[in-house]
Nucleic acid binder design. Structure first.
Length: 424
RNA sequence: GGAGGUGUCGCCUAGUCCGGUUGAUGGCGCCCGCCUGCUAAGCGGGUUGAGGGUUGUCCCCUCUCGCGGGUUCAAAUCCCGCCACCUCCGCCA
């Protein structure tokens, strides 16, 4: 949720922010009205309640006729209090519902525009020239089949489109990646976590996934639980309703969890292979910081994401995502995109967002600092998304015979294997 | 899934049966001060959190006893629903 003080003190800033996002500006005026009505109803209620209290105290000590007279007065008052209370509750929920639709204020540094208006920040490593090497690169589906690593046909048989089995060396590869990622994260000071993948509505709502992204979320209706699309949800909710000491920040968590996404509205997009699937596993980095610290932390998280891709020896670029593509919670987002030879372009393999106080305000995560309590800032960053990492590894490190070179850093986690050989 | 119990302002706890000076008792911890070669002990005071008013950190108001409703002039206290934890039973990895 955005800071409602902006609505009161600087509505023009909010209008500009909405405009930069391509979001509704009229909502600002609605917010101003709703906020004013909330304050008015609160004032009414508090005034009546104070009067009621005062009378109640008198009744307690009065007796006889005086008491009866007081009772007559206060009975009428009680009805008014009840009405005022209902009016306040109504005004508050209207404001809350309205505020919930407003996205976080995008950073001034984020490029303005839609999905295609990103800015490329860096490009590192160069895509291999397969023509010069004299062979046509295979895509990950073909490579995975030859290695006995990926089985999409049986995935579809069992669970439907966009499901897969990792088999044999494919399964080992994921476990190796997870293990390596966790050890790196541990070295950087993260606390390893294995969080729940099913969460209550509050966690989902608090992280901003029930708004415009709700269609992409799996819901278990019978128990009113949601399957998380990222462990960011469970990690953000981890400290909900808590007040953290400023000295304990930043707090960094690295979680391994499955991720479930309905991928609604992506019909026909990336239908081949395991690039876009309904379920994958991921190691996610998550930081709690103060608002001031969050900007530097964002850079650090990006640095760690890059270090990870460097050690997997993948060519990639980093983009500064445009305002219209930030989602609800982020003020700024960097995506790392690895080169995919089969597609001849860069594709997202990781992403880091600074959500500032947007999630913390909803989930009630506060920092106890010198200025009193204030909402914490939360940041998330992909370290290792299993399927896309496997796709990038197989395609970039393939050889003409369909074998795949294992980057040195990963070899100790794959029983020392330097090359994955086709089984058929 | 069934039966019973518990949930009080950091931690522990009184209060709940029998509604009203409870805007919640006491202890521990913590903070400030006093005392003292130092430390400890001792003595005095402070200590739930949130929102708002005034922005004259001085005060005032509202909310907050797991959460949400209800009854009542009035709810920590009575009633209903839910949640979490504990014990036992059943079922299952």
């Amino acid at each position: 949720m955005i800071d409602l003080r902006v609505v009161r003190n600087d509505p023009d800033r909010l209008r500009t922010a909405q405009q930069r996002r391509g979001a509704s500006e009229s909502v600002v005026d609605e917010l101003i009205v709703a906020d004013r009505s909330r304050r008015d109803t609160i004032a009414d209620f508090e005034r009546l309640r104070a009067e009621q209290r005062r009378l109640g105290k008198e009744i307690a000590s009065a007796s006889g006729g005086a008491r009866d007279e007081l009772l007559r007065q206060t009975k009428a008052l009680a009805a008014q209090v009840k009405r005022a209370e209902a009016a306040q509750a109504g005004a508050e929920s209207r404001l809350r519902d309205l505020a919930a639709t407003v996205p976080n204020l995008a950073s001034d540094e984020a490029p303005e525009g839609g999905e295609d208006d990103f800015r490329v920040l860096v490009e590192t490593g160069s895509p291999r020239d397969f023509a010069a090497e004299g062979f046509e690169p295979r895509d990950h589906v073909e490579l995975g089949r030859r290695l006995g690593a990926i089985d999409v046909e049986r995935g579809a048989k069992t669970s439907g489109a966009r499901f897969y089995y990792l088999t044999g060396v494919g399964a080992l590869l994921e476990l190796a990646l997870v293990q390596l990622a966790m050890e790196r994260a541990l070295g950087w000071g993260f606390t390893p976590m294995i969080p729940p993948a099913l969460v209550k509505p509050r966690a989902m709502e608090g992280t901003g996934f029930l708004g415009q992204a709700a269609a992409d979320v799996y819901r278990v209706e019978q128990d009113d639980l949601y399957l998380v699309g990222t462990s960011e949800v469970a990690l953000a909710a981890y400290h909900s309703d808590e007040t953290l000491d400023a000295e304990s920040l930043p707090r960094r968590y690295a979680a391994f969890s499955p991720c479930y996404r309905r991928e609604a509205g992506s019909y026909g997009k990336d239908t081949r292979g395991i690039f876009r699937v309904h379920w994958f596993d991921k190691v996610e980095m998550f930081s709690y910081t103060s608002l001031e610290q969050s900007y530097d932390e964002h850079e650090r998280l990006l640095g760690w994401e890059r270090e990870w891709l460097d050690q997997l020896e993948l060519p990639y670029r980093v983009i500064d995502v445009a305002t219209g593509d930030l989602g609800l919670a982020a003020v700024r987002k960097f995506d790392c995109e690895a080169w995919l030879p089969s597609q001849g372009r860069y594709r997202e393999v990781s992403s880091t967002s600074n959500c500032t106080q947007f999630q913390a305000r909803r989930l009630d995560v506060r920092v106890r600092g010198t200025r009193g309590n204030e909402p914490a800032a939360t940041l998330n960053a992909t370290l290792m998304a299993s399927t896309r990492t496997i796709v990038a590894l197989l395609e970039n490190h393939q050889d003409r015979d369909g074998s795949v070179r294992v980057p040195a850093a990963l070899q100790p986690y794959l029983q020392g294997r330097a090359v994955l050989e086709p089984t058929a």
